[in-house]
Simulated assay, not measured.
Amino acid sequence: MRNGKTALVTGAGGFIGHHLIKYLIGQGYVVRGADIKHPEYEETAADEFAIADLRVPEQCLRVTKGIDEVYHLAADMGGIGYISAFHAGITLNNTLINVHTLQAARHHGVKRFMFSSSACVYPQYLQKDPDVVPLREEDAFPADPEEGYGLEKLYTEKLCQYFTEDWNFATRVVRFHNVYGPLGTYDGGREKAPAALSRKIASLHDGDELMIWGDGRQTRSFMYVDDCVEGIHRIMRSDYSAPLNLGTDELVTVDELVDIIAEIAGKSVKKCHDTSKPQGVRGRNSDNSRLRTVLGWEPKTSLRQGLIPTYRWIEQRVAAELGFSGIAAE
């Protein structure tokens, strides 16, 4: 049963946007997706899908017209190797996308606008130890974000704040902490660690050597995509306009992440570390205290629980590409 509300999901050809559209339709929305490309691995569930380059103001005006709520996920982004290598292009593209989409949404009188930010906004000086203290929302200042991608995200968070304070335009800001799951990018250079490691392990035979970026002791927390899209909608429906972390606080080293994936795969691997490769900050974890206070909710899917369907999906893709089947029973 549709509820009469219209939603725009930008970045609808991407991983989180594709899953979010399915979730919103399940909640009764009429959904328009917009992206520069269609989803790669599955047909969109959107009621309407607009191919649009959101760096162009006129195209932002076109896709935001007649919309109640904008879930703005469109971004030039990728894993640590990608965002470390292309500061100028990423910053320019995302500045144009975010400023023009935000302005177009206000022009059309959109009721609520959600901006997808990132844990990359947090200061690098707080993330130099693998045994990191979980990051609180207020820790973003004094600022020292990830160059390029993180700096632009932090700027747009403030722009959303100013739109709300000066023009009473309702905005929400969500800071994602490492989202993973099926139907996400798993090769090509833009993939995140869970997908990259799943692809590598799926390509190996039992006992083979696995190359890991960094020394394997860097730490992260990871959030399953089903929790992510539920959290996005809960934050949008809340009355809280300041930035909120959306992630889990289950901290693991990259080596421990490898061990979990290898166990799911039913394979043993020999870890080999390449410390010349980008590895990002030494440690990053989400403090969910404010999320629990605001929503009375937080992501609940454990890392191993979420990695099972994630690995299985990637394993099937890799097996089809390589022409072999080494799928282990769970």
Rank of each mutant, 00 (worst) to 15 (best):
N93M: 11
G306D: 08
A85C: 02
E250T: 14
T219Q: 09
G4H: 08
F222Y: 15
T310G: 13
D35F: 00
E321F: 00
D274K: 03
A242N: 12
L322P: 10
H107M: 04
G13D: 01
F115S: 09
Y155N: 15
Q127N: 10
V254K: 09
G28V: 06
L244F: 07
K65F: 00
V254W: 02
Q316S: 11
K267D: 04
Y240G: 06
V31K: 02
D215C: 09
P57T: 03
E48A: 10
E40V: 09
K158L: 12
V229F: 02
A328C: 08
S289F: 00
G148R: 11
L244V: 06
V179W: 05
K270C: 10
T64H: 03
S276F: 02
A143K: 08
A88D: 10
F222G: 08
I308H: 04
Y122C: 07
E152T: 15
L307W: 04
E152D: 14
T185M: 07
H273S: 05
V63I: 08
D215A: 14
M211D: 15
V56H: 03
D215N: 15
E298R: 09
L322Y: 02
C272E: 09
V121T: 15
Q103F: 09
L151R: 12
P130E: 06
V252I: 15
T293V: 06
G247R: 12
G323D: 09
G216R: 03
V133C: 03
E147T: 13
R284I: 11
T253Y: 06
Q316A: 13
